Simulated scan of single mutants.
Amino acid sequence: MTLSQAIIKCMDYIDTDESMYSIYAKKVNGRFRPDSEALVLKLTIDEMEMKSIEVAEKKCPGFDYFLEIFVLKDFYEDLLKLEEFKSDTKKVERIIYYAEFDA
């Protein structure tokens, strides 16, 4: 799955009291890109308490933490209301920018 696909499908994932979803992706030249390889991980309560780097080392070596799905959903829903972010490409670019510089 690409990072773009993981972002666009964020509404498909539902957190519960026992687990939470997070996206981890590979950086290309030190940056997240829409075509970066990505994984959506379902984390247990114990894993949620771990540092993101520890989760990556344990579950997906070579990947870096991107965003938790619940944070992504909130941001994604806000973008849906803005005319300038109607295209999936624009939403993905803005969310990647948010994850790298504002989160």
Rank of each mutant, 00 (worst) to 15 (best):
residue 73 K to Q: 04
residue 36 S to F: 06
residue 17 D to P: 11
residue 24 Y to C: 12
residue 29 N to K: 15
residue 31 R to N: 15
residue 44 T to I: 00
residue 31 R to W: 13
residue 40 V to I: 11
residue 26 K to Y: 14
residue 63 F to V: 05
residue 23 I to V: 12
residue 72 L to R: 04
residue 19 S to G: 14
residue 65 Y to A: 12
residue 78 D to Y: 15
residue 36 S to Y: 10
residue 64 D to R: 13
residue 39 L to E: 02
residue 75 F to Q: 07
residue 28 V to F: 15
residue 77 E to S: 14
residue 64 D to E: 13
residue 37 E to G: 08
residue 69 I to M: 01
residue 38 A to E: 06
residue 54 E to P: 08
residue 61 P to Y: 10
residue 71 V to Y: 08
residue 20 M to Q: 11
residue 70 F to P: 05
residue 39 L to A: 03
residue 21 Y to D: 00
residue 23 I to Y: 04
residue 23 I to F: 07
residue 38 A to V: 06
residue 30 G to N: 13
residue 55 V to F: 04
residue 74 D to N: 13
residue 20 M to E: 11
residue 79 L to F: 08
residue 47 E to A: 00
residue 47 E to G: 01
residue 57 E to A: 15
residue 22 S to Q: 12
residue 34 P to Q: 08
residue 28 V to S: 15
residue 56 A to W: 09
residue 21 Y to Q: 00
residue 40 V to C: 08
residue 32 F to D: 08
residue 39 L to R: 05
residue 40 V to D: 02
residue 19 S to K: 12
residue 74 D to S: 07
residue 42 K to Y: 00
residue 45 I to H: 01
residue 61 P to H: 09
residue 20 M to G: 08
residue 24 Y to I: 13
residue 21 Y to H: 04
residue 35 D to G: 04
residue 51 K to D: 10
residue 67 L to M: 12
residue 68 E to K: 14
residue 27 K to Y: 08
residue 65 Y to L: 12
residue 56 A to N: 07
residue 26 K to A: 13
residue 67 L to E: 05
residue 49 E to N: 15
residue 73 K to L: 02
residue 32 F to Q: 12
residue 35 D to K: 05
residue 63 F to N: 07
residue 55 V to P: 03
residue 79 L to H: 11
residue 59 K to P: 00
residue 54 E to D: 14
residue 76 Y to P: 01
residue 58 K to V: 07
residue 72 L to T: 02
residue 34 P to K: 04
residue 17 D to Y: 07
residue 72 L to I: 03
residue 68 E to L: 09
residue 72 L to A: 03
residue 79 L to V: 10
residue 41 L to W: 03
residue 61 P to Q: 11
residue 54 E to Y: 14
residue 42 K to E: 00
residue 21 Y to I: 00
residue 50 M to Y: 06
residue 59 K to N: 02
residue 44 T to H: 00
residue 19 S to Y: 09
residue 19 S to P: 09
residue 73 K to N: 04
residue 55 V to N: 10
residue 80 L to A: 09
residue 64 D to F: 14
residue 66 F to L: 10
residue 77 E to T: 14
residue 47 E to N: 00
residue 36 S to K: 11
residue 52 S to Y: 14
residue 20 M to S: 10
residue 39 L to M: 06
residue 45 I to S: 00
residue 39 L to S: 03
residue 17 D to F: 07
residue 38 A to T: 09
residue 56 A to K: 10
residue 39 L to D: 02
residue 21 Y to F: 04
residue 18 E to S: 03
residue 37 E to C: 04
residue 44 T to N: 00
residue 48 M to T: 09
residue 63 F to M: 05
residue 36 S to C: 05
residue 57 E to R: 14
residue 69 I to C: 02
residue 36 S to P: 10
residue 38 A to P: 05
residue 55 V to Y: 03
residue 68 E to Y: 13
residue 62 G to H: 07
residue 30 G to I: 06
residue 42 K to S: 02
residue 52 S to P: 12
residue 39 L to K: 03
residue 40 V to Y: 05
residue 37 E to Y: 09
residue 79 L to A: 09
residue 41 L to N: 06
residue 67 L to R: 06
residue 69 I to W: 01
residue 65 Y to V: 12
residue 44 T to V: 01
residue 23 I to W: 07
residue 35 D to E: 04
